[in-house]
Amino acid sequence: MAESVRSGGRSRRRSGEKSLDEREPLDLRPRGPQHAEITALAREAVDETGAEEPREPPIRLGAQTTLGERRRRTLGLAFHVLCAGAAMVGVLSLVVLLGQVLHDGLGQIDRDFLTSFASRIPERAGIKAALVGSLWMLALTAVIAFPLSVGAAIYLEEYAPKSWITTTIQTNIANLAGVPSIVYGILGLALFVRAMGLGRSLLSGALTLSLLILPVIILASQEAIRAVPDSIRQAAYGLGATRWQAVRLQVLPMALPGILTGTILALSRAVGETAPLIMIGALSFVAFTPQGPLDQFTVLPLQIFNWVSRPQEEFRQLAAGAILVLLAMLLAMNGVAIFLRNRYQRRH
């Protein structure tokens, strides 16, 4: 498998490039149903070596190009510019968005802003309760969602027999990932707040958000576990390991960076989530920091929503300040995820 992938990667290179060996690339092209998958892998391999993509060959039709030829080339160039322009729209939107938030919010951030509670008087308002609430929420959600999702991923990859039950679970997870977050809010409201009597507490919120990001972490973890080569498992079994020993001592440690990256990215989604928490009735005006998981709370996105909804300009600026803090938090989490990926990425 590894060999065929590598040769697949080689065949991607252009014949114009000097190849170290004289093998005919086309003969080594992998065949069979897994072709698309291998092609994708091979592409990744080429990307990593930094090899050039095939370039458009120059059109040579006799000595002079015809009028139609020129038109085709102009059209081609126009399309190239169009595509590049479209790609820039996304980037530009991000830049403008960040610029706007920085412009409005940077002046808001000082020590008082971080250490004061929300207030009806804009000059005195701060985000202390929301910031502490978000950190609580992050920790609780991580503690709840991580073991459950990794457990599910291990089951699906390492234990599950090929049966309709497994297929059902897998399809179900894919579909859950597409359910709008507000629907999870309804579930949280009816199940945790009302039926289980947890009230409008941090715990209700964390449980709701955990269910929301469960499918995301499961899918990422499955991918990480699948990337661990089978030879590792076979070697462990060969030495007399039980299935759980092989998973716990060999597979999990190797898959952990991938699992953690996926988890952090999913958690950063939970930290930015607003709608489900409005559903479970988290308070927007909280002038205390929560002391335990059963306390009422607010989080940064809720505080932002609360401020944005007010017509006064001062509150909009407060919202921009809070957005900056939230974005900084998300950026830090993404940074950790990227660091983990780069630091522990190993090729098997």
């Binding site: 980037v91 968005l97 932002i304 921009a320």
Partner: peptide
């Protein structure tokens, strides 16, 4: 591509409440 792709993924990572703010103020 290696710069463009992660940048675009950042767009997906921005919380939706921030997009609401952006829509309203810009």
């Amino acid at each position: 591509r290696s710069v463009l792709k992660p940048t675009l993924e950042l767009l997906a990572g921005v919380p939706t409440v921030v997009y609401g703010y952006f829509a309203l103020t810009f």
